[in-house]
Amino acid sequence: MLNYSIYPGELIFEDYDTFEAEYEEIELNDEVRLLVERINNNQLKISQIISSNPNYYLLQEFQPGTILNTTLNLNQNH
């Protein structure tokens, strides 16, 4: 990979080997799925929107980094 940045690579990729994120995919409806990162049992952080409808990407509710509070424990579903 080619990085073109004024920050040195060792600074950007520091902790890269130990950094691990676990993602889950949740389906909202026929058109949109969200890739989320679990913070704890009740909170999910949106990482990516997966949809072919471009309008979803402009919705404030779906911006990456948004934290979703769940009232359901998703672990029970798995």
């Binding site: 909202l28 409806n29 999910l44 404030q60 509710e61 948004t66 934290i67 979703l68 769940t70 009232t71």
Partner: peptide, 11 residues
């Protein structure tokens, strides 16, 4: 589909 289960924080 969503708000029933989740609610977005801050929005």
């Amino acid at each position: 589909n969503f708000i029933g289960q989740f609610s977005a924080q801050g929005t």
